[in-house]
Design a protein around this nucleic acid. Structure first.
Lengths: 137, 137, 137, 137
DNA sequence: GTGGTCTAGACCACC
DNA sequence: GTGGTCTAGACCACG
C-alpha cells in the first residue's frame, strides 16, 4: 500500500507518515484497524524498524493512531481535527508555494483549481466534498 | 523585501529562491530589472554570500534570472513556462499532501478552495485569474 | 471503580495499583475489606490475570494490602506510613517535575497551589486536611 | 549541569529534556544562549549523539529551544506558554498521583504544601512567586 | 510478540 | 562545523 521512494529527499519516516494518513483518508485503512507491527511494516517496505517506529511515534503524537501496549498500533477511532493557529499558517505558506510554482509552470488559477479537484476525487470524493464526517468515524 | 527565517527548516537558499520568485510574481521586481549583487543581497539579508550565490544559480537554472558577465543579474524578460512531466508530478504530489493535511485539520474542499483563492489574490489577482499573460511580459 | 486506559503509557499494573490506592484513600474501599480475587478483578477490568497479580504483589510489598492464604486479599487495617529516605527523594523529584512543567504552562505558584487544593478536596477532605488519622484506622 | 542517572527508569532523553528545562528555569541557561552542540553534549554526559538529538528534537517541538541551521541550537527568547486542555489534564493526573503517594507516606496537606514551597525556592523564587515574567524573557 | 530505548557508526545537506 | 536521517543490532518492559 505504501510506496517508499528511497531517492526522494523527503525522509522515509515522513513518507510513511504521509502514506498512512493518505491510506486512512482513502478508506484503505479504517478507524479501529490494526496497523502492521513495526517489524512487519519495516520488512514490507524494507526499511529499518527504527525508521518505522519514528513514523508511528509521529502519527501517535498527531493522534492519528494509538498504540496498545503489547498488542499493536491502531487507527484512532475518534480522531478530532483541531485547527491550531500555527498549523494553519504553515498550510497557507505551503499553498502559497504551490501557487507560485504553478504560475511558473504556466498554470492559470482555473488549471490549478481543476488539478486540485482531480486530486480530491482520487482521494475518495465521498469523504471530502459536501460533508465533513471525520468525527463520525 | 525578502524575509529570511533562520529558524525555519527550509534551507535559506531555498527561501531566497522562493522569495525572489514571489516578488517577481507580485510585480515588485519586474522583468528586465537588475537584482542586487550577491554581496549586496547577502548583506541585506545577513546571509552567507555562498548561500545567495547558490540561490541565484538555482534561479538561473530555472531561467527565471540571467547573469550578464560584468554587468550583473537580471530578471529574465522572456520567461517561457514549460510544463515538464516530472515537475508536474512533483506539483501534484505537493497538492496531494496539502489536501491530506487540510483534511486532518478538519477543512472541507470548499474551505481549501476558498483559502487558495485568498492566497491568489494576495499575490496580485491581475496577473493570474483570467488570462495567462506571463509570456507577454 | 477502577478505570483502565489501555492506550496510556503508564503500565496497566501500575494503573491498578494507583487506582486501588486512590479508592482506599477516598474511602470507597475500607481497611479490612476484601478485594476482588485476581480472576474477578481481571475480568472486571478485562485485563490479563498476570497483570492483576503483579499489581497485587506490588501493593502487598507496599503493605497496603495483605493476602490470607485460602481466604483472599484484604486491605491492611493497620497501615503504618513510613517515610523512607529514598521514597522521599523520589517524591521531591516528582514534585520538581510538576513545578517545572507548570511553569512552562504559564502557571504561577498560586495557580499550582490552588490546583493542588482542588485535587485534595476531590480525594475526600476529611481524611487529609487537618489531622493525619491514617494510623487510627 | 545536567546529571544523568543511567539506572533510572526514566529514559535518558527525557532526563535531558527535564534537565535543560530546569536549568533554563533556574537561570543557569538564559534565553538566547546557545546550547552545547549535540556532539558536545553527548560527550559531556557520555550518551549517544542520537539520544541527545532526540532530546533536542523534543524540546524544539515544545518550542523551548530552536535550531539555526549549521550554527547550533539556542534557547527560545520569546517562549509563550500555552495552556492546552489536554496538557492540563495530564498535569492534574500527575498531581493526584503525588497527593496519593504523599498520603501513603504519612504526609499531611500542610507538609506537602511546605515541600512544594521549598522546591519552588530552589528553582529561584524570583521567577515564579508573585509575577509571571515568562513572556518578558 | 509488541513497542520503546539506546548505542555505534555512517552519510548527507546546509552554512 | 552543525543538525538530520538511516541502518544494524541489541536489550528491556509489558501483556
Amino acid at each position: 500500500m505504501i510506496i517508499i521512494d528511497s531517492r526522494s529527499s523527503t525522509p522515509i519516516y515522513q513518507q510513511i507518515v504521509d502514506g498512512i494518513k493518505e491510506n486512512i483518508l482513502k478508506g484503505i485503512i479504517q478507524p479501529g484497524d490494526r496497523l502492521p507491527s513495526v517489524r512487519e511494516m519495516s520488512s514490507m517496505i524494507t526499511a529499518n524498524p527504527n525508521t518505522v517506529s519514528r513514523a508511528y511515534s509521529e502519527l501517535e503524537r498527531q493522534k492519528v493512531i494509538e498504540t496498545i501496549r503489547g498488542k499493536g498500533t491502531y487507527v484512532t477511532s475518534n480522531y478530532k481535527p483541531k485547527v491550531e493557529e500555527e498549523r494553519m499558517e504553515i498550510l497557507k505558506e505551503d499553498i502559497k508555494k504551490i501557487v507560485v510554482e504553478a504560475h511558473y509552470m504556466g498554470l492559470k488559477k482555473d488549471d490549478l483549481v481543476k488539478l486540485m479537484d482531480e486530486i480530491f476525487n482520487n482521494l475518495d470524493g465521498t469523504q471530502l466534498t459536501s460533508t465533513n464526517n471525520i468525527e463520525k468515524k
